[in-house]
Nucleic acid binder design. Sequence first.
DNA 1: AAGACGGGGAG
DNA 2: CTCCCAGTCTT
Length: 384
Amino acid sequence: MNQTEQKKYFSQHLLEWYMQNKRDLPWRRHRNPYYIWVSEIMLQQTRVDTVIPYFNRFIERFPTVEDLADAPEQDVLKCWEGLGYYSRARNLQAAAKQVKELHGGQVPDDKQAVFALKGVGPYTAGAVLSIAFNKPEPAVDGNVMRVLSRYFLIEEDIMKGSTRSYMEGLVALLIPEGRASDFSQALMELGALVCTPKSPHCLTCPVMEHCAARIEGVEESLPIKTKAKPPRPEYRVVALVEGTGEHAGKVLIRQRPQSGLLARMWELPHVQVPQTRSGRLPDEPAMDILAGALPEEGVTARPEGYMMDAEHTFSHIHWNLQVYRYREASIPLAAESREVYMLEHERADEEASVPQYRWIAEEDMALYAFPNVFLKIIREHFKR
DNA sequence: AAGACGGGGAG
DNA sequence: CTCCCAGTCTT
């Protein structure tokens, strides 16, 4: 069998397999470009099973591009809470505004326009164009690179941009005439269900007969991929401040900065502390450092004692959190004067802006988007 | 080209 | 526990 025959065999058998085995997924029930687009953004670095409930809630809350464009950003972040990579949500809404303003609310179907949308790179552009509009554009994600690297025994590092470009050229040759939508999905479906990263299910694979890696017995060692650096540890001391007086029963939260890690999400006040030789900072100095930092949040508070430890791993940082209970000791006048100041000076775009903070009751948690690690701590508090 | 950017699942 | 997953934006 020559190269051309190997390719034809692959496309035909893969497509037949897909038509028999495709999963019933919420975004596959209609060919709505907005649904396809939202699902593809959510599916970046995220498994299908995780995405499904988020997708359903998101579409229920923002049924159209225009609903998304017009929503408060905090509502969008709240819908994304727990999904991670929150710039995806912020970029998706920014892109919805682009689609509303520039394209009358219709997701564009030409390459330049789709690629120009915020948060849409080569993969997502290809996915939207092929899946939603049946255009013969390659959509090369990790699944596709794994499948192709095995079937064609490609030993280039898939972390290199040049490898992805090569794969795009290959996929373009494989797309059957008029079947771009099904073929794009078939390729990724095979990677997700059969040609899995570890112990691939070769015996049920529709193209195993001519899979070069299986024939050579090297399917488990492909694709070739450079390993990521381990996350660097950071130690942080966190305050769970319980309010008194008019804030009785409430907890102090603050909003993160406009950009960077977890941008514009809400969290408990905390400070980074130097790593000691033993790792953990002892409780007394930890509580004191934090008590000294809290006045900058506009409150004075008395330390009450240790509450819990928590850990959270990002792709590049590992947070070790020591959480302490505090009790509000005075009315935060600084807070009110700061709000007046903010109102008087329309300084929304000032970079060194003072963090927003707020007292919230348990039921107010529905109004603010928190990273999972703080959600866990705050729920633990209100459970008490 | 390299680093920033979350969170969950499998073994 | 450890290992694995891997798109886009920024620098």
